[in-house]
Amino acid sequence: MYNLESLSLEDLKNIFEQAKYVADENILLSVFLSLKLKKPLLIEGEPGCGKTEIAKVLSSGLNTELIRLQCYEGLTASETIYEWDYMRQLIEIKIKEAYKDTANLENYIFSEKFLLKRPLLKAILHEGPMPPVLLIDEIDRADEEFEGFLLEFLAEYQVTIPELGTFKAKQEPLVIITSNRTRELGDGLRRRCLYLYIGYPNYEKELKIVKLKVPQLNEKISEQIVKIISKIREMDNILKKPGISETLDLSRAVNVSNLKELNSSTILKYLGCIAKNPDDFSTLLKVDFSSLISEQNK
C-alpha cells in the first residue's frame, strides 16, 4: 500500500505499469505533481485516448474509492452535492405519527439518514486512510454556471447544508477533471488546475499499448493494425479520427476472430470498430487498404 507523502515518481510508474497503462513521462509527471501539490489535474485531449482511465488507474493503484461525476448539459449544483430523500421523510413522518412519537421529529427527519449524498459531498465525507479520487468527467459538457460553482468547491473543499451545517473535507480528494474540448473552459478553472494534454500516441507507444492490452494477438497483425490506424488519422476527410480505444477494439475483434493475416476484405469487415459515423464509414469504404498493407509488408 502506498503512502501519498512518501510516494515517488518510481512508485507512480509501477502503479501505471501494474494497471497496464502505458504512461509517458509527461503523464507520470503531471499526475505526480498533482498528487504532491494537491491541485486538481485538468486533462484535455482527443476522445478515446485514455483521459478517464488515468483516474481509474490511480484509484485502483492507491487502493482508494473512485467517485465519478459525469457532467452533462443542465447539470446543477444540487444534483452534484446533495438532495433530501423526501419520500422516505414522508413515510417516516407517517410512521412516527402512528406511534405518536413526534418528539424531536424535525431534527430527526433532517438528519444524515435522509440525505442523498451526491458525488461532491461523497468526496468530502469520505473516510479512509487515503483520500478518494474524484473524477469530474467531460466538464466541457456542463454549463458555464456549473463551472463557476466548481471553482468555489475546488478552492475550499467544503459544502454547506443549511439544516446540518458545514462539512469540510478531512482529506482533500485527488481531483481529475477531463475535457474533450468541445467548448473553451474558463480561465478561472484552468488557473486552479495543473494541465495535461493527451494527443494521439506515436507508433511505438500505440504498439506497446496493443501488445499490453491484447497480448494474444499476433505481432505482425498488431503492427499492421497500428500502422493502418495511424494512416487513417492522417487523412483530412475523416471527421472522427480513431483514438486508442478504436485501435484496441479492432485488435480485440481481430483476435476474437482468430485471423492469421490481415487483408483488405477483413479490414472492411471490421470497419465498424474504426468508423463511428456514416460519413467516415463511406470514406473508409473507398480507401484501398490492400495497397496500405502491401506497402507495410515491403
Binding site: 513521462e25 509527461n26 509527471l29 503531471s30 505526480f32 505533481l33 504532491k36 501539490l37 485538468l42 484535455e44 474540448r181 480561465d187 484552468r190 488557473r191 488546475c193 495543473l194 494541465y195 495535461l196 494534454y197
Partner: peptide, 25 residues
C-alpha cells in the same frame, strides 16, 4: 515542484514547468 527532485535534468525541468505554467494546448 522542482524541489521534489534532486539535481533535475533539463528534460525534467522542461516537463515540470510545462505542466505548471501551460494551461492550454
Amino acid at each position: 515542484s522542482l524541489m521534489f527532485f534532486e539535481n533535475p535534468s533539463r528534460r525534467l525541468i522542461y516537463s515540470v514547468l510545462k505542466t505548471i505554467f501551460v494551461k492550454r494546448y
